[in-house]
Simulated assay, not measured.
Amino acid sequence: MQRLLVIILLVTGFSACQKEFSEEFSISRNNPLNDTAWTTTTVSPELTQMLTNLRGELPEPLIDSFDADRDGGIAFGDSLKLEFEVNSGGLCVAGQPGTIANRIRGKVKIALTILKNKDEIMKSGFTTAGTTMQALETDMIAGIKIWQNNTELDLFGGAKIAIRIKHKAPKTDRILFQSITMKSGRDSARIWKDITNSDNKIKKGNSVYNAGNYSHFYELETQYTGWLGSCNWADTSNTTRLNIRLPLNFTNKNTVVYAISTSSNIVLQLKDEASIQSFYYPSLPKNIPFKIISLSVIGNETYMGTTESKLVSSPDPVKLEPTRKNWQQVKELLQQLN
């Protein structure tokens, strides 16, 4: 009887151990943490929603109106002023050829969005790189949208917009760039094209004495709407490929990775390569310190990985170990980039 009792206890104990192991370590096909596959199509809806939420943190645009038939100006306080010159052109429906016959008449609306900080540039979805992925130092991005009756408009002919934008440290060597979308596989990268000429330019404005202080400005002139950047090329005479290593369940479906300079306004979104399951940047400057940041959404949880500021001198993989963060922690950590 005693021997039988011992056998029963052993069997019961073994069954209990099996049950405990099963409950704690069960592998479910529906658990998003177990998905290690990379994609060549689209990212997860959860990651898309997180990136949308980041854009929702951007400054609200400044909105006003002006008369499309005549020259005029708008002042948004003492930090932002806009002038519109008709010259021999005007405004037309976006995407259509502009002529005097179909020129827009009457009042139109204009929205200006100004981004100056690195966290704002990152949240907006821009990467500060040229058409061949050369890094750009970007002091400021200006978004210009003009519309009438919900129809977006473009400038044509000799029409021009001039904007004076307050800036704490404008530089004399800035070039005017326009944002364009470059399609590469499943990705659409918003990069920058040099459009500087006699009608499209940016320069350091004259300082203005106001209320006991000098205010410094950039002066931008353009015949374009959309997103424009005050940029110049970073030193890319000595570059290396940046490769990132993440744990297996952080993939291009649920993760984006950035290299953000800690010494200047450079924000680079890394590309991903599903065939080798890697995030990379093809030509990172070696002489500029960068902080590497990953943002991920797996299931309902947000994860963030960061490195300390460092010079990346070789293509040896940089390792990131993302940890779980709440939304407030993500916003605070991004704010510290500035």
Rank of each mutant, 00 (worst) to 15 (best):
G185Q: 08
I144M: 02
N338W: 10
S207C: 11
F21E: 07
I121S: 03
W227P: 02
L10C: 15
S314V: 06
I121P: 01
Q336N: 09
A169I: 00
N254H: 02
T42S: 10
S124D: 06
S230L: 02
K123P: 09
D187R: 09
S230V: 01
T132M: 10
G157V: 05
Y280T: 00
T48L: 07
G56P: 08
Q96R: 14
G157C: 09
Q277M: 02
L270Y: 13
E20R: 15
N200H: 09
I114P: 06
A274L: 07
L9V: 15
T132I: 11
L248H: 15
N287L: 01
Y280I: 00
L246V: 08
L246N: 03
A142E: 13
L270W: 07
T172E: 15
K291V: 04
P285L: 08
T151Q: 12
E20A: 07
W233S: 10
E46K: 13
G205I: 00
K81T: 13
N210D: 07
K291A: 01
S26V: 15
S261A: 06
K145Y: 15
K183Y: 09
R186F: 09
F66T: 10
L80E: 03
E24R: 15
K171H: 15
T41R: 08
M122K: 10
I104E: 14
L4G: 07
N31T: 10
N238H: 12
K310E: 06
D173G: 08
Q223F: 04
S198E: 12
A101E: 09
L320M: 12
N102M: 05
P289G: 03
G106M: 02
W192N: 02
N197T: 05
K118A: 03
Q277T: 09
F250I: 01
S294H: 13
A169V: 00
T181F: 04
S184A: 11
F290L: 06
C17H: 13
D235V: 14
S179T: 08
L47P: 04
E221L: 04
N238P: 05
C231A: 14
Y218K: 12
T239F: 01
L248C: 10
N30A: 10
F21K: 09
D316Q: 11
L295G: 01
G158I: 10
Y281H: 09
L80V: 05
N287Q: 11
A75D: 08
G185M: 04
Y258Q: 09
T306A: 06
E46V: 04
E308Q: 12
I74N: 08
L155S: 05
N34L: 14
T225D: 06
D154F: 04
G13C: 11
A274Y: 05
